[in-house]
Amino acid sequence: MASIFAFFDSGGEMEFLEATPDQVFAALDPRHADPLAFTVQRCSWGGDGLEGHISNTARFVGTYPPNPVATGVVTALGGPQEYIFGNLVICGSRWSPTEDEPPSMCGLSQAQQDLIGDVHTAVREEAASTQR
């Protein structure tokens, strides 16, 4: 089933894709390495969260270019302050009522899309103003 995901290319451009997780992960890493998932915003008590996905080899600088815009977006959303290389996908995560089950991946809600879009715009504007 297709859902909405935020896709950031290595140049920092963002678009919302309606796709299946397999299609998104193929776009995430053209070399088809297994993606690494990390929590951007925790989901709890029935609320939705955000989850980031990068290529398993994205930490190798020689393989993928640094992505300062994606790094800034993740940091502004409260995610880990770790530099991102290459492409990034942000999806939703849904709280699981039992502790045995991890949160499940899901598409982004409209509110999450609006938030990510606004943060992306602000980070791009800040990056442009510092390059002047």
Rank of each mutant, 00 (worst) to 15 (best):
residue 28 L to P: 03
residue 103 P to S: 06
residue 90 I to K: 02
residue 69 V to F: 03
residue 12 G to S: 10
residue 78 G to T: 06
residue 17 L to K: 08
residue 104 S to E: 11
residue 118 D to S: 09
residue 132 R to Q: 12
residue 89 V to A: 08
residue 18 E to F: 06
residue 5 F to I: 14
residue 46 G to N: 02
residue 58 A to M: 00
residue 104 S to T: 15
residue 34 D to E: 13
residue 65 P to W: 00
residue 40 V to I: 15
residue 96 S to C: 09
residue 113 Q to H: 02
residue 12 G to R: 07
residue 94 R to G: 01
residue 88 L to Q: 08
residue 123 V to R: 04
residue 76 A to D: 12
residue 71 T to V: 14
residue 34 D to N: 11
residue 71 T to H: 11
residue 77 L to Q: 15
residue 80 P to D: 15
residue 1 M to F: 00
residue 124 R to C: 15
residue 55 S to G: 15
residue 3 S to H: 03
residue 120 H to V: 14
residue 7 F to Q: 07
residue 14 M to P: 03
residue 71 T to G: 10
residue 55 S to P: 13
residue 101 E to W: 01
residue 24 V to T: 14
residue 79 G to M: 12
residue 6 A to C: 07
residue 59 R to T: 07
residue 57 T to V: 13
residue 11 G to D: 14
residue 39 T to A: 02
residue 45 W to R: 08
residue 50 L to Q: 05
residue 18 E to Y: 01
residue 3 S to L: 13
residue 37 A to Q: 08
residue 124 R to E: 03
residue 64 Y to H: 14
residue 70 A to Q: 14
residue 82 E to I: 12
residue 97 P to E: 06
residue 116 I to E: 12
residue 88 L to R: 05
residue 131 Q to K: 06
residue 99 E to P: 00
residue 53 H to E: 04
residue 57 T to R: 05
residue 104 S to Q: 13
residue 47 G to M: 04
residue 80 P to C: 14
residue 41 Q to Y: 00
residue 62 G to I: 13
residue 128 A to Y: 10
residue 18 E to H: 00
residue 132 R to P: 03
residue 94 R to H: 05
residue 38 F to L: 13
residue 100 D to V: 13
residue 112 Q to G: 11
residue 12 G to H: 09
residue 21 P to Y: 02
residue 51 E to H: 08
residue 101 E to Y: 03
residue 48 D to H: 08
residue 35 P to L: 09
residue 81 Q to T: 10
residue 109 S to H: 02
residue 123 V to P: 03
residue 36 L to M: 14
residue 65 P to D: 06
residue 90 I to S: 09
residue 53 H to K: 08
residue 118 D to R: 15
